[in-house]
Design a binder for these strands. Structure first.
Lengths: 236, 236
DNA sequence: TGATCTTTTGTACGATAGTACAAATCACAT
DNA sequence: ATGTGATTTGTACTATCGTACAAAAGATCA
């Protein structure tokens, strides 16, 4: 115990390490990995540049630690919510519950980490866009299981839709989710102020509603190869 | 005329300038703005670093020129397709045509620019994620009109859905669109090889189908504040 | 208190960034 | 052929990057 030897619980020491992690997470999530220097992070955390090296060895190591911090809790939370959702009897309600179990943890705090859900999800979105290698590896090996679990759960609610379609649509869901966290101001702007893109509750409800409908769309595979060739051709 | 003095029209000279633009577009779109150096671009284009400075003055100027190259043609194409879509009589068909008019130009070539639609859209996605200032400005002032036009057109096909919901759903559409271009391999992976995320035709059909259904979802505004509180609460 | 371990600081090094600019080269009209 | 303007090259400058490392400071316990 550093400061409070009396209390038994490992009370939070206001650690530099934590401050650096938080600052890095914020900066990476808003500006990307390469646009942010170790010195930027140190300054934002009120630390010395050398301190970053001491705690995380390299800049990549810092990013890796951010991921380690969040992936576990977030996946755990999703598993719990998914398990609960799968117990819903009504098929329509279950689909919505499953989608919600996927979406909610991405927007809200993952257990003890203060309000970090949205920030970390945004970070993932940005790293994904930048093609960051460190992130790509850890994401594939951490989230693919969860993604499969969700895809399977959704597929159970929609047996008549081919799995391929479910995959595409869940991919769209993740894209929509990411983009909502990356550019919330665009929603406010395009709605002329009538909607607040930064409001997590609205985003969640809108996203769940829209996504459930998307999942319920008829399969497009062989069933209806194209119910009619559209007005729009590929070449003018 | 460099090679063919007989022809009057300022025929395309296979310019270094074009090669630099193409290389920069490709590199920015896959690695982000900050991860790519002017020297990287020059090398990929088979040019000298100084040549980039000569043609575009700064790295920002190069990015700006890329946007200038694409924004005009792409918006024009979208306007044409939108105009055609709005002439569709059947309301359901019209909605699909409008969505298609929005999606198709993003995936396919914009007029003469070789296969640049998808690449440029991916570039926009990445710049958006990185919060790039140059891109942010030019995008807001170039695409917001188009976006409003599409939102209005969709709203006309779905008068009972509040405009706010349309905005959210079109935002989700753009996010899904972006993400499909940024991480197509994820689709292939999650579908265990059954789908090809890089196949533009599949992506378009899947996206259109899913999005039309999403737009047609019931309004969630006051009509049904929440048809039942879901199984999933925000806090465990 | 003094010894020991952890953390923070300060500074420095080599690599690479964006950009500037003079010299070399090229295209082409005269 | 030659002069002229456009382009390309080569190189250099300064700033900043990630990282290393020794010294200072702080914490812990005999």
């Amino acid at each position: 115990m550093t400061r409070n030897p009396a209390s038994k619980e490992t009370a939070r020491k206001p650690n530099m390490r934590e401050a650096i992690l938080a600052a890095a997470e914020e900066l990476f999530a808003t500006n990307g990995f390469n646009a942010v220097s170790v010195r930027d992070i140190a300054q934002a955390a009120g630390a010395n540049p050398g301190s970053v090296t001491y705690h995380f060895k390299t800049k990549d190591g810092l990013l890796l630690e951010i991921y380690r911090r969040h992936c576990g809790p977030m996946n755990l939370r999703r598993s719990e919510l998914l398990a609960a959702a799968k117990r819903v009897r009504d098929l329509q309600d279950r689909l919505e519950a499953v989608v919600r179990a996927y979406v909610v943890p991405a927007f809200t705090s993952g257990s003890d980490l203060a309000g970090g859900g949205a920030r970390f999800t945004r970070l993932r979105a940005v790293m994904s866009a930048e093609g960051n290698e460190v992130a790509r590896k850890i994401i594939a090996q951490t989230f693919d299981d969860t993604s499969h679990a969700f895809i399977d759960a959704i597929h159970e609610s929609l047996p008549h839709v081919p799995r391929t379609d479910i995959v595409w649509r869940s991919h769209f869901l993740l894209g929509a989710l990411y983009y909502s966290l990356v550019t919330p101001d665009r929603v406010s702007r395009l709605s002329r102020g009538e909607a607040d893109g930064s409001d997590a509750a609205s985003a969640i409800e809108q996203l769940v509603q829209a996504t459930v409908a998307a999942f319920q769309a008829p399969a497009l595979d062989q069933a209806a190869p194209a119910r009619r060739r559209p007005v729009v051709s590929s070449k003018t």
